[in-house]
Simulated assay, not measured.
Amino acid sequence: MLDVRRLYMLKTVAARGSITAAARSLALSAGAVSQQLAALRNDVGVDLLRPDGRTVALTEAGRVLLEHADRILAAMEEAECAVAAVKGTVGATATLAALPSTVARIVAPALTALGERHPQLAVTCLVTDRAQLRELALGTVDVVVGQRYHHLPETADRGVDVAPLLDDPLLVVTAAADGAGERPVALGELAPHDLVVPPPTTDCGQAILHACRQAGFTPAARYVTADIAAQLALARAGLATALVPRTAIDPSTPGIRTAPIEDHPILRSLFAATRRTGTTDPTTTAVVSALRTAARQARTAPRPPA
């Protein structure tokens, strides 16, 4: 009989691209993973992996086995969810992955509420800019707080359920001393400004570039950083104008003014993603519910300073 743990290792190696990377994510040695995969190869009697430059790739037999492994692993999670649903109680652990810009206004309030409502639940929170939907599929995280900018086509990820949290507009951020107030700003007015923007390889950087070009100019990126704290510091110092998501700005931040964009709004949709199962999991349901409540509160919270 095939060992489910070995099937999961095969899936992880296929997703990570190498035994070393898979071992790192599994908190195992590369030797231990190699031994388990060798045992799996002996179980099926055919090679499952082949060298591919500095990485490894699945053989045809490996691809066939992985298709079945995905169904087996999904069925096991379905069984766990079904038992949890019968018990009707929130579990003891969950792992949440979230973008840094969502922590202060959404994630932190949600985790506080979860701690009060379900004190037995320990949530591990991974704060990272890296896309985590792959980690969701691998089972290393249970809930992902992600984003999609409106200029990008909406894509449906197989096996993933998405719960919308809120639409989060980017605001124009300048030094408080510039006297601009909260008057809505036409994006074209920023053409002569020195801007601080995220790298163009990021979703936010692409969204800003796309909107500015629609407004008739290519932004002058004097400063390039994805660090929102750095963006706000440069704006506060009067060195640059920033475009920052509303929920990423602490309303009590001193020394800055914010204004909405009136003609070419730049919006990101925040969402909570979970693995799709036929039975509702009380634990992930509780986490998503807390995130949605925090998002509603963030939507009605006071505007950042103007």
Rank of each mutant, 00 (worst) to 15 (best):
Q120M: 07
Q120Y: 03
Q120I: 06
L121R: 10
L121G: 08
L121V: 11
A122L: 10
A122R: 11
T124I: 10
T124V: 12
T124G: 10
C125W: 05
C125M: 07
L126Q: 13
L126K: 13
L126F: 14
T128G: 05
T128H: 02
D129C: 14
D129A: 14
R130M: 15
R130S: 15
A131D: 13
A131E: 14
Q132T: 01
Q132S: 07
L133R: 09
L133M: 08
L133V: 07
R134S: 07
R134I: 09
R134W: 08
A137N: 06
A137S: 08
L138G: 04
L138Y: 05
G139D: 03
G139K: 09
G139Y: 07
T140N: 08
T140S: 11
V141A: 07
V141E: 08
V141S: 09
V141N: 10
D142R: 06
D142F: 11
D142E: 11
V143G: 02
V143P: 01
V145H: 05
V145A: 06
V145E: 06
V145I: 09
V145F: 06
G146K: 01
G146N: 02
G146Y: 01
G146F: 01
Q147A: 15
R148K: 07
R148Y: 00
Y149M: 04
H150L: 11
H150D: 08
H151R: 02
H151P: 00
H151C: 04
L152K: 15
P153Y: 10
E154Q: 08
E154Y: 09
T155F: 14
T155D: 14
A156T: 10
A156V: 09
R158Q: 09
R158G: 10
R158I: 10
G159Y: 04
G159S: 02
G159R: 02
G159K: 02
V160Y: 00
V160M: 00
D161C: 04
V162R: 05
A163F: 07
A163S: 14
A163V: 12
A163I: 12
P164M: 02
L165M: 03
L165H: 00
L165G: 00
L166W: 03
L166R: 03
D167A: 08
D167H: 07
D168E: 01
P169R: 09
P169K: 11
L170T: 04
L170V: 03
L171K: 08
L171Q: 06
L171N: 03
L171D: 02
V172E: 06
V173Y: 02
A175K: 11
A175R: 12
A175P: 03
A176E: 06
A177L: 12
A177S: 14
A177D: 12
A177H: 15
D178K: 05
G179P: 00
G179M: 01
G179A: 01
A180Q: 13
A180L: 13
A180F: 12
A180Y: 11
G181F: 05
G181D: 05
R183E: 12
P184H: 11
P184W: 09
P184E: 08
P184L: 11
V185M: 03
A186E: 15
A186K: 15
L187W: 10
L187G: 08
G188C: 12
G188F: 12
E189A: 12
E189F: 13
L190T: 01
A191N: 13
A191Y: 13
A191D: 12
A191Q: 14
P192M: 06
P192Q: 03
